[in-house]
Design a binder for these strands. Structure first.
Lengths: 184, 184, 184, 184
DNA sequence: TATGAATGAGATTTCATTCAT
DNA sequence: AATGAATGAAATCTCATTCAT
């Protein structure tokens, strides 16, 4: 069963979610179809087992980002948090790659990811509402910034560059912080 | 053949790229499998025929965005351009929805989209390099901003909200412009 | 599809309902699995298609038996009706054989047969209620007599004897008539 | 092993013979596949072990019915014997239910039941041959009566009604006795 | 041009049975 | 005696594609 899980990670990452056949996983795990169906009901089932670790860790991280404040130290705190997030993201890279694919075609696969996004957006929104008044709508701006972070991270992942580098992290932190506290 | 194309748009949008079977398209088009294969070699073929309109129009648009300048008028120009882009994007919504799904699992499907992204990024990069020096890496910052626009548009599309509203467009234009010209 | 249906009759009769595999039918019909699933959703589906002719004809027959009367002519009428019923029964023998098997394990397969039984029982019951008072409960007696007919016919079918012979028909008619009109 | 047997009775009765998997029995018995195959060679094996009690008891009963005689006391004797038989039948209801199913698809499962039927038919036949001459063929009439009893009992069993009531027993005894001794 | 019945390769899934511990 | 993870043969089912008409 452990063999099946690691084989699944490998195959899902190599061939992608849709192109992966139960048969591929079974072959790489060097076991039988019978064994596969002993532990998992189907391809989706083993996949969900695979992503649950990644999503729960990233959910936890998303909730952990506290209030930032307009000072440069706020920016640095965000930067450091983005670094942590990036580390997790990279660590689960093979799974997240396939998951993004699955989530694009299946709404129910998206839900855990949307929780993460939501937590993130809320935190940003709070920052903006508490800070200097701005002409931007707090919710819209937060969503835009989260979209930026999410998509930038994914680009790196998709192009199989590793790791998400300091320049990207700095840039994201700066643009976000500027977005949250326009004067700064 | 026209019937096949419009049926395909409908079915791809309803069921998504992977879940769509040639049979579904043929049924909605009220024609036969034989006819389908008379005009298209397979599912991918008709799909590419479908997206080519959308991608070529959007490529053209991406190239059309000229130098912006740091003044508020630059921001307004960007805003107005984003509005145009959003209009196209919405117009092709059903196709883009399915295309995003296909592109996530198939690199060769991505290429036309990447052309658009690239053109966009280059333009932004030029702006930053010509403008006030900034501590942000021009290429990285440009990519982040393009990622933000792309993803924000896609969110609206995915949630089947219509249209991309003024608040989103203003927010994106403002954050981008601020990103390009930090002082402004 | 006609080939599939006649192949199915043959195979179901030879191997029985449970032992029959879609593969067996396909092989005898000299066609492919694809073709099978083009016309039928599964083994049960083709089976139901097969029995519907038999059950509808026999339902019609069951309804057609009119009031009998206590005189010997009543007995003869019943006798003649049983002969007709037996002819139908024999004609559909291969299907009924497999159907009895399927019905024993699957309640939903039984329903059409139960309709026939019910119609039959009702008719007998009416006879008894209208005739000379008897110490037997009309409904119970009717059910017993129908059970006798049904089971006697089935024995012949199961042992692949053909046809249900005159002696059996006479015996059943006599016992039934005596049951309905004790004095006669 | 006792646990396996009682679990088997329960599962065979709930799911029926064909739908029962060894796995179901093992789970209900709260033991392992290994243990199952230690005591039984396969599903059929445990099933035969299960029905042997029922069939041997009922065989014994079938043989125990003595000559009846044309007087009312003959009818009463039959009635009382049917009562005993019904009691056994009900006692083994769960097993007989599944057995009927198995017997319908597998001739070798039928044999023990056919012994019972045969003994029963023979006894009836003897009655008729020794009694007043009748226009009915003794063997055919006997088989019809046995078919009636057998099927009537089974109906009660199948519809999970309990127990076979006095009215049914009286009716069967009366119709049989009348069949055996037409004048009576 | 147009048809649609037929195909068959390949994917998924089940379950009786074994065997090392 | 007892276990239960592992097996694999065999079954079910899907769907892109072809081809005779």
């Amino acid at each position: 069963m452990g063999r099946l899980l690691s084989a699944a990670i490998e195959v899902f990452d190599q061939r992608g979610y849709h192109a992966t056949r139960v048969d591929d996983i079974v072959k790489v795990a060097n076991t039988s179809h019978g064994t596969f169906y002993l532990y998992f009901t189907n391809k989706e089932d083993i996949f969900r087992a695979l992503i649950s670790d990644a999503t729960s860790e990233m959910s936890r991280l998303a909730e952990s980002l506290g209030p930032l404040g307009p000072e440069p130290s706020g920016r640095d705190e965000l930067r450091s948090w983005l670094g942590e997030f990036a580390t997790s993201y990279q660590r689960f890279a093979p799974v997240i790659r396939a998951w993004t694919e699955a989530a694009t075609s299946d709404a129910s696969m998206r839900s855990s990811g949307e929780d993460i996004t939501r937590a993130f957006v809320k935190m940003f929104e709070r920052q903006i509402r508490c800070g200097t008044p701005t002409d931007l709508d707090p919710r819209t701006a937060s969503m835009a910034l989260v979209a930026m972070i999410e998509r930038s991270f994914y680009y790196t992942l998709r192009n199989r560059e590793d790791p998400i580098n300091a320049s990207v992290l700095n840039t994201l932190a700066t643009i976000c912080h500027r977005g949250l506290y326009p004067g700064s």
